[in-house]
Design a protein around this nucleic acid. Structure first.
Lengths: 140, 140
DNA sequence: CTAAATACCTATTGACATAGTAGGCAAATA
DNA sequence: TATTTGCCTACTATGTCAATAGGTATTTAG
């Protein structure tokens, strides 16, 4: 399952997208609208800033804003940043040790295909695609 | 990530498939071949028996055996049995309460599509497909 | 009939991740 | 300079994961 961190991060990004052009958006406003504890969102937003997904400005009049256009974010990069990896098994995560059973593993090819499919799905979705009416995304 | 329970369950099923026609296979043999603790496998195998994935026979000469032909199992049903659900978010799990935010949730349609894709992927794979050389499974 | 082999059952454990909360410091502006 | 905001460290409760421990029930082989 996708954790709350990943899901809330998407909601924060979408909230900012919906209030683009309004300057810095205080986290309090986002927390109120999304009905998520501001304290918990702080953790999530900190990681988003570190991952160069958005800008934070301190002080009065401060808040957060997108640092790219909404069409330039993919759902995949946001989820991968928050979840660590999208790999279904540890041996396919980035920087994982090579499994000694890899050569004889009957399931590894399936996991690889699955991982590729998941990656393509999420990286094929722009953040801006989540707004408005939705056309299914097909896979080949 | 898919848990060890799901992954080990697949390996147990594949092991039994590879020793089909040899009667009851003691768990000890499977544990030795797969290099997994027999005690831990007991938990997994118990759930597989409960889920009508295999037969267990007690006593000397006992062991486990598939209760269907290998082509009649899908990876999806095995994983779903062990993992509980394949849903990426709680509100899409079987028997989940309807989320009050569902109507306005911008991400729900994406999660639904994703869930459908994952379901189709795993239910489209027969257990017997995992043996031998592998043709990629394509999705439309 | 008995010993061995096997499945089956309940309970317990340590480690780790999840989903937060608490309280304060730093920065910037009105 | 007071207020508003982000930013930082630390803490905690709960639950899940991945196993281990120790026993009971069942069946067959000798």
């Amino acid at each position: 399952m996708i954790s709350t961190k990943g899901r809330y991060a998407l909601r924060v990004m979408l909230d900012l997208e919906q209030h683009e052009g309004e300057g810095n958006i205080p986290l309090k406003d986002i927390a109120d609208r999304q009905e998520i504890s501001k304290k918990y969102l702080e953790i999530i937003v900190k990681e988003l800033v570190r991952g160069h997904m958005l800008n934070g400005v301190s002080g009065k009049g401060g808040g957060y804003s997108l640092c790219r256009k909404a069409e330039e974010y993919t759902v995949g990069e946001i989820l991968e940043l928050m979840e660590g990896t999208l790999a279904p098994v540890a041996c396919l995560a980035e920087g994982a040790d090579v499994c000694p059973r890899a050569d004889s593993c009957l399931t590894l090819p399936m996991w690889k295909e699955y991982h590729q499919m998941v990656h393509d799905f999420f990286y094929g979705q722009k953040l801006s695609d989540l707004l408005g009416s939705r056309d299914p995304v097909y896979y080949i």
